[in-house]
Design a protein around this nucleic acid. Structure first.
Lengths: 207, 207
DNA sequence: TTGGTTTGCCAACGCTTGTTGACCTGATCG
DNA sequence: CGATCAGGTCAACAAGCGTTGGCAAACCAA
């Protein structure tokens, strides 16, 4: 939209405020979702005036876009032996999620992706990078459907544990979770995909 | 809060309007979530005045509560042979979700449960009835963790297919989905749970 | 010291929201 | 026929929202 990034505050002296706003924004977006989060509340949490948020990020949407750029850590499956890749993936994501509870990135993304279609698209791209690409790089035949199935399972876990607080998943410890989910993930990595998620397969309606 | 349900319109002549409001409300809540849905929009869709919604349901929260009471169909696993129960459960839920796209109950619940804690609690109770109870009735040893894991997987599927529109899950046909997910569900039904999700197991920290 | 730029606060704008109360209308019933 | 009353409309309220423009103070280069 805008070419020059002509936002109000660009000087080096404004960095602390900028970071305070972003931190408050991420926390608020994670706690209450996009619509329910108010610029006034973010500004109050950051200890400055609401108009400052506008000067720094242009609009509420701009603030959200700035707050949702995250540095993701992509797992490398290649050195992991085939039979242990399921467990490795589950542990990788769950441990990252556990440690990122400070900045709330995951809940923040999940809460908003569900309400906001643009964020949902962005999340799809993110999951392609995070799941399908490593699977493809590890030499899997069909990373598309396989990655989607694994992604669905991990997202379901995240949803139940961090957003819905569904017991006993919400209060299980990490090792238990990994032990429980690893076989199912491994199954999707191992299973030969002769008849599975492919467009245009010969229809064989059971009913 | 109120003891006598003293809402404005209770006569039999108001039934069509009441149903029109509820249908419009479910559609709107499913499409846009709780906060984003306005009483004015619901009223317009139902072809009446916003104040009528207040007379019928008291408040926006009351409208939501009325719109979210649904009749769920609990699967009966007992006549299904053990080895086919995974496939049966996946098919049962996916087919119900596919056919309920007319009234949007599922998306409606998912969208709101993510933003609204009270709805999340309600959803947990609903999933207990829908998943854990049938598993327990079928004689499973440990329906709690097992049901939660299956629930997480099914919720992940629903989230990816109906809310996030994650490809290729979003546009896969039902039979493909069932074939893909059934083994993983079956795995959770079959697996012996010696070391799994139990509180108070001896801690064996890997790290 | 001077002068311009940056950082910030304040007060207000226009708008939408949920909600309310006064008024109309048409069916029902004595 | 006239009274009654539920079902429905209309206009307005107070509150909260994102957003804007003006103005004070702090900073830094000259």
């Amino acid at each position: 939209m805008n070419s020059g990034e002509a936002l109000g505050a660009g000087g080096p002296r404004s960095e602390p405020t900028r970071r305070a706003i972003l931190e408050a924004a991420r926390e608020a977006f994670a706690a209450r979702g996009y619509e329910q989060t108010t610029i006034r509340a973010v500004a109050a949490q950051a200890g400055i005036d609401p108009s400052m948020v506008m000067r720094y990020f242009g609009s509420k949407a701009g603030l959200f876009a700035a707050a949702s750029t995250t540095n993701l850590q992509v797992p490398d499956l290649r050195p992991v032996p085939q039979a242990k890749r399921g467990e490795f993936m589950v542990r990788h994501f769950v441990e990252r999620w556990e440690h990122s509870l400070g900045d709330d990135t995951l809940v923040f993304l999940l809460r908003t992706a569900v309400t906001n279609d643009a964020v949902a698209d962005e999340m799809q791209a993110k999951f392609d990078d995070l799941i399908k690409k490593p699977i493809a790089a590890a030499g899997h035949d069909d990373p598309g459907p396989c990655g989607a199935l694994i992604g669905a399972q991990l997202l379901g876990l995240a949803l139940c544990r961090y957003v819905l607080h569904l017991e006993p998943i919400a209060s299980a410890d990490v090792d238990t979770l990994v032990a429980d989910l690893a076989p199912a993930i491994q199954l999707h990595l191992d299973i030969p995909r002769d008849q599975l998620t492919r467009p245009g397969k010969p229809p064989a309606p059971v009913k």
